[in-house]
Amino acid sequence: MPPNLTGYYRFVSQENMDNYLRALDINVVLRKLVCLLKPDKEIIHTGDHMVIRTITSLRDYVMDFDLGVQFEEDLGPVDGRKCQTTVSWEGDQLVCEQLGEKRNRGWRHWLEGDQLHLRMTAEDEVCVQVFQKVK
């Protein structure tokens, strides 16, 4: 049975965010701003339904979805694109595949103790963020 990711997580660290954003064709000014942000994550996981909120001082981004069901995701707040998104479990990792203009786009979340890890990919770039569970 996969883990329940419900909780509130504070930002700890990130690696390679600028190159990841460059792969998404984000302009240099917005890339620099995003690299300064220290987002929090709030996850509500109820059965096969999940809500993942990424909370920043600039804006929040909310994903509200059912596991295993493809939906159109509006990534307007991120990079102005829409894609067909499916989120499902692969073992203990929550895996998101985002089909659209960018190759190899998606992410995966997993827990290591009280830390939530996020690995985001776009084209050939990988960004890793780590969050600490606080409640």
Results as ranks from 00 to 15, higher is better:
59 R>I: 09
77 P>Q: 05
98 Q>V: 12
126 V>E: 14
93 Q>C: 12
93 Q>A: 15
54 T>C: 04
83 C>N: 13
50 M>N: 05
9 Y>A: 00
97 E>A: 12
2 P>C: 07
83 C>H: 09
80 G>T: 07
102 K>W: 12
48 D>C: 02
124 D>E: 15
85 T>Q: 06
133 K>S: 03
102 K>E: 12
1 M>W: 12
42 E>N: 06
13 S>K: 01
123 E>D: 15
44 I>M: 11
2 P>G: 06
119 R>M: 13
89 W>I: 00
20 Y>E: 02
70 Q>W: 12
71 F>Y: 13
27 N>I: 13
63 M>C: 13
59 R>G: 05
77 P>C: 05
29 V>D: 14
85 T>K: 00
122 A>N: 11
113 G>I: 00
1 M>C: 10
65 F>W: 00
30 L>Y: 14
10 R>I: 04
43 I>S: 00
83 C>R: 05
131 F>P: 02
114 D>C: 06
16 N>T: 07
86 T>V: 02
22 R>F: 15
86 T>I: 04
59 R>P: 07
74 D>L: 04
114 D>V: 05
61 Y>V: 13
14 Q>F: 11
134 V>R: 03
81 R>W: 08
60 D>C: 00
100 G>D: 05
128 V>K: 14
45 H>T: 01
30 L>G: 07
112 E>T: 08
121 T>M: 13
47 G>A: 01
14 Q>R: 10
102 K>A: 14
117 H>F: 13
104 N>W: 09
125 E>D: 12
106 G>R: 10
107 W>K: 10
109 H>K: 02
89 W>T: 05
133 K>D: 03
110 W>Q: 03
55 I>R: 02
41 K>R: 10
43 I>V: 03
87 V>N: 01
80 G>Q: 05
69 V>N: 02
102 K>M: 11
